[in-house]
């Protein structure tokens, strides 16, 4: 059990927690938070990969780009959630029953 293994395990657990949040919560903003939580772990993995393979500068540029993407995803997710709130007056996922086949 060295450092890399521990960090990998922590990251995997965090991705698991984020995906759990995506699948199991009822609150729309909370789902977006779940995405961000999982992205944190992915950021850690990218830097870890840079340190292991000896190209840390490259992975730092990746991390910076990922952060921009993350922020925009948060904007779009929050915007859609706010739009749904204006329609339904609540942020409950269980309201979403319009589309069925």
């Amino acid at each position: 059990m060295n450092l890399v293994t521990v960090l990998l395990i922590i990251g995997l657990l965090m991705i698991f927690a984020g995906c759990w949040c995506l699948m199991r919560t009822y609150h729309l903003l909370k789902i977006t938070i779940g995405i961000e939580v999982a992205m944190k772990a992915v950021t850690l993995f990218l830097v870890l990969a840079g340190r292991i393979s000896g190209s840390l500068a490259l992975s730092e540029t990746f991390v910076i780009t990922v952060m921009v993407a993350e922020a925009i995803v948060a904007v779009v997710g929050t915007g859609t959630a706010v739009g749904l709130f204006r329609k339904y007056g609540s942020m409950d996922v269980r309201n979403l029953k319009q589309l069925k086949g």
Partner: peptide, 21 residues
């Protein structure tokens, strides 16, 4: 879609651990 993004980025990080590029 974001779930798939998380998957793909994780995969990218894992591949980078091996190759560094």
């Amino acid at each position: 879609s974001e779930l798939s993004s998380i998957f793909i980025l994780t995969a990218v990080a894992f591949l980078m651990m091996k190759t560094g590029s």
